[in-house]
């Protein structure tokens, strides 16, 4: 029997705003499958986003949903989670929202190791505003504000998350749709701040400027560059050049923020909530 996505979709809120060929819908479906696998209760689940194409996702999901301001999803979500630690809190957004204007909140959410899951759809571009370069736009690639090629180096979101202290970091792609929900399930189950980066594509504002002839070509690129971490162990540095590791990249057990704050309450002699 086909999977019933409508279980978690808000009635009457589709169609979504995403362009044909955009991978955000694939990620949303993966997220819904993960929510179903975990049996997440709608009333006890908050989906929080910032601004951008990916950040429109919460509006389609039938949970407590919070579409915040540009870059601020992690900080709003931190407030929700700290106030109600019993809630499952999932953040969604794009690369510009999460690692440029929201970069400070992102690294500090990682550092606190607060038990939330951040799904970052990385399409290397500011799509909603028409294709300006983001912190993940590759060097020398074209964007509407880098007509001569991008002079900036780019962020590796997963490395950034690991360096900042996130205790679960995974990466998938919009091509590898069946892996997305599995990564998200493990991320939500992990006690601590978990980051799932999904390499995604924006045919409309990134693809056409960077000589991709079709969405299929962009999808094929995702397929070709992705190397599962297990497979990578057997490969030489030469073989890994230009590749991107996928799967669970990092996992560590460390004290979680809300649990640590509960200890503060106990040390202060306060009543447990």
């Amino acid at each position: 029997m086909a999977f019933d996505y409508e279980k978690y979709i808000r009635p009457g809120k589709l169609p979504h705003i995403w362009c044909p060929g955009c991978g955000h819908g694939i990620v949303m479906k993966g997220m819904i499958r993960a929510m179903d696998t975990l049996g997440l209760e709608k009333n006890n689940t908050a989906i929080v986003s910032g601004i951008g194409c990916a950040s429109r996702l919460p509006g389609y999901i039938d949970c407590c949903t919070l579409h915040t301001a540009h870059g601020r999803a992690a900080a709003f979500a931190t407030g929700v989670k700290l106030a109600k630690p019993e809630m499952t809190v999932i953040l969604v957004g794009g690369d510009g929202d999460g690692t440029a204007i929201g970069g400070n909140h992102f690294i500090h959410a990682c550092r606190r190791n607060i038990d939330m899951t951040y799904i970052i759809m990385n399409n290397y571009i500011y799509g909603m505003t028409g294709g300006q370069f983001s912190p993940t736009t590759p060097h020398m690639h074209k964007a509407s504000t880098t007509p001569y090629g991008n002079p900036d180096p780019s962020f590796d979101i997963a490395k950034l998350a690991i360096g900042a202290g996130a205790t679960f970091v995974a990466r998938g792609t919009a091509f590898h749709a069946n892996q997305i929900d599995k990564l998200i399930v493990e991320a939500i189950q992990h006690k601590g701040f978990s980051v799932v980066e999904i390499l995604d594509d924006c045919p409309t504002t990134y693809g056409r400027r960077n000589k991709f002839k079709s969405v299929i070509e962009m999808m094929n690129r995702l397929k070709e560059v992705a190397v599962p971490v297990k497979a990578a162990e057997k490969m030489t540095p030469e073989q890994l050049a230009g590749k991107v590791l996928t799967g669970i990249l990092y996992k560590e057990d460390k004290p979680e923020y809300c649990s640590e704050y509960q200890k503060v309450i106990e040390r202060a002699g306060g009543a447990a909530r």
């Binding site: 915040t68 900080a75 931190t78 407030g79 700290l82 106030a83 704050y261 309450i265 306060g270 009543a271």
Partner: peptide
């Protein structure tokens, strides 16, 4: 605040504090 089971958080910047404040308030605080 911890004495009454309340929550205190020092955020990474001013707008982050405002964001956490609004998030906490939406969660009923």
């Amino acid at each position: 605040l911890p004495k009454i089971g309340g929550k205190f958080i020092q955020m990474e910047d001013e707008i982050g504090a405002m964001a956490a404040l609004l998030g906490g308030a939406l969660a009923g605080s």
